[in-house]
Amino acid sequence: MPLMRLDGVSKRFGGLEALREVSFALHVGQIMALIGPNGAGKTTLFNCVAGADRPSAGQVFFRGEDVTGRPAHAMCRAGLARTFQHSRLFDDLTVLENVIVGRHCRTYAGLAAAFLRLPRHGREERESREQAMHALTRVGLADRAQDEAGSLPLGERHLLEIARGLATEPVLLLLDEPAAGLNDEETANLGHCVRRIRDDGVTILLVEHDMTFVMDISDQVVVLDYGRKIADGPPLMIQADPEVIRAYLGEDLE
């Protein structure tokens, strides 16, 4: 059984069809890349899958359940984490605090515990802190824990978003253009990090423009063009696919 399956997912904004009946399956332990020219509908697809947006038609299955149209916080609880194309860090909080927010869906202290500082809240807080530090270690940011998130360079901001996602204990991690704006060294570092996370048992779906990175890292590639899926397969096959080449003709491969 695939970890996630999309079945004819479409999304319309007014008259614009951003996604047209996209279907594919994502299996446990894979790194899958979603590519396509600008405006192909990649981020829209992410939003539909992660609960930030509701598909106009079609279904999304996650871990065997129909999760179509579930809100983002429920998807997070179900084991899906994501990063954003333009990073949405909490800039004036510390790096550690950013990641602790990621523990929200795995902790339970409610109003009463918060108001009264019940012992169980204290325990949970300590645990959250440890888990968050662990997530930071996994992406190599442990020594920046006390810095303000806004002070990080771009490469580390991407890593911090990943750490924040990891803190939610996901089984599936969605990365929206994680390599955008990174230099070669940072990109290589990111690649190692992503592979390590996959080796720890987290399945990965990423949107990326950096083709070298995509072809190097992914097991399977899905290509979107004008909201339609035009190809789906291993990197080598995709590189040779005539329709993919046609879609990218005249487009910058960056």
Binding site: A52, R88, F90, I100, V101, C105, A114, L116, E124
Partner: peptide
Amino acid sequence: NLSESRVGRSLKALRRSELAAESLGV
């Protein structure tokens, strides 16, 4: 107490970005 708790942190998060906070389970 509230502002220094898990609940308070989720408020701070959603003030800065509702989208990000939601994606982290808030």
